[in-house]
Nucleic acid binder design. Structure first.
Lengths: 252, 252
DNA sequence: AGGCATTTGTGCGTATGTATT
DNA sequence: GAATACATACGCACAAATGCC
């Protein structure tokens, strides 16, 4: 089979990318500043210069850095970063301050995109895509009491809607979007029964799309988002006084 | 001085990225298929393996390809591609069929995002950002008779609105979005006086944002988009019978 | 203004692991 | 199981650019 996890433990380039990428996203080296020179990175991570160079090119491909001959490799301003890249998103979600910022931005973006995506999907989804929506919904229902699995299918549902729009750009969003949604849901489902409460809305969305009813699809999607935002707000409020739970998110 | 054009003519890695990237985006090598083996690319482009390897990593950083140990470097499915990456967009716009697809997708996406972005900007734009909107508008007016320059400022205006939303993710879109808009505008302004006709709407958007009137900002933005779509439709219709003009878009 | 030192860019040879044949 | 082909990994040497003195 195919390892969907891109990292073997001794993929030197990958590990170097992760190490450097995290530093940049975390802000250890600010936009405009330069990374350590290649040789220094080689020494620190005990890898050859070629490995570092390939790692640097990988990050440059994500527009996180840009290297110039004598000046070193400098960090690009954040607005150049590819914030929909799964790896970049992972890094952003690992640090508390950036995670908050990204997830807030996500809430707004969802409110903008998802209802319209649902409406578009209602106009254009293929029968296969509609079927898939219902299948995912069934899986959600099946795992309703198992938050981890449930979130996975919840994300899949929203991605499937984006894909059903038939819009190339919207479809592209679905990857990065999915990762962000995962983080978002992991927050919101901590609210009592939030997931089960929202289950019906997912069915309603699927049905509206099946019935080719864009208006209803949009409306239900908006309703779902409103609840989600309320859950997030409640969760935040709870956490501010209680400051409980939350672990298991540090990687490395 | 900073060269915003990233390519010196003898930046081997860059040129290799461009060459391979174009092939992939153009569909010369389909998703799922593998690129020629490294040595073959080295021979063809007369570069060393290091150069090819770094180029491959760059493209992998954009999620266009993924290299597996024995299998070669295989092209990722299109929905994995980073379609907001300026380079990727450039490549997509160079070929007629993909250009049509992307620009169509863009029209839809604009209709979804821009009115809401304008509304958000009306709520949150800083005075500097508002000022900038008006400055850009003045430039648009100034160059109204010079399509090339005008398009440039038109794009800048729409990007400035996205940036004024204060939303991290929306801001990220502004780069790739801008390039797409440029291509879009270059089409739509071929319609008689389209640019001058739309000039007022840009002012109205800026004013609505200045007046902190989200509803009006949204409405005017929608009106502008509707006109733009009509222009594009007209342009396409004209072109189908006449099949005139259009040159100067082939690179390399 | 000119040379020098630093830093990335490029080329090549080779070793190693792994999956296919 | 051995041979093979491909990709990863490493090290060294030189080229080219550019900021600094």
């Amino acid at each position: 089979m195919e390892s969907s996890k891109p990292a073997a433990s001794s993929d030197l380039v990958f590990n170097t990318v992760e190490s450097l990428g995290r530093r940049i996203v975390r802000g250890d080296v600010a936009p405009g500043a330069t990374l350590p020179v290649e040789q220094a990175i080689c020494d620190e991570l005990s890898v050859s210069r070629n490995v570092v160079r390939e790692a640097v090119k990988t990050l440059a491909g994500k527009n996180l850095i840009r290297s110039a001959r004598r000046a070193g490799t400098i960090v690009e301003p954040q607005e150049s970063w590819n914030l929909l890249d799964p790896q970049v998103i992972t890094w952003m979600l690992e640090e508390r301050p950036t995670r908050e910022t990204v997830l807030n931005a996500l809430s707004e973006l969802r409110a903008i995109i998802e209802p319209e995506a649902a409406a578009l999907a209602a106009k254009r989804a293929s029968t296969e895509q509609i079927l898939k929506l219902f299948q995912i919904y069934e899986q959600m229902k099946l795992h309703a009491r198992n938050p981890e699995r449930a979130v996975e299918f919840d994300v899949a549902f929203h991605r499937a809607v984006l894909e059903a729009t038939g819009n190339m750009l919207l479809r592209t969003f679905s990857h990065g979007f999915g990762m962000l949604l995962g983080a978002n849901f992991n927050l919101s489902i901590q609210v009592n029964n939030a997931f089960i409460r929202n289950l019906d809305d997912h069915r309603l969305i699927a049905e509206a799309i099946r019935d080719r009813d864009p208006e209803r699809a949009r409306a239900v999607s908006q309703a779902l988002l409103a609840k989600n935002e309320a859950d997030i707000r409640e969760m935040r409020a709870t956490r501010e006084q209680g400051l409980t739970a939350e672990g298991a998110l540090d990687a490395d």
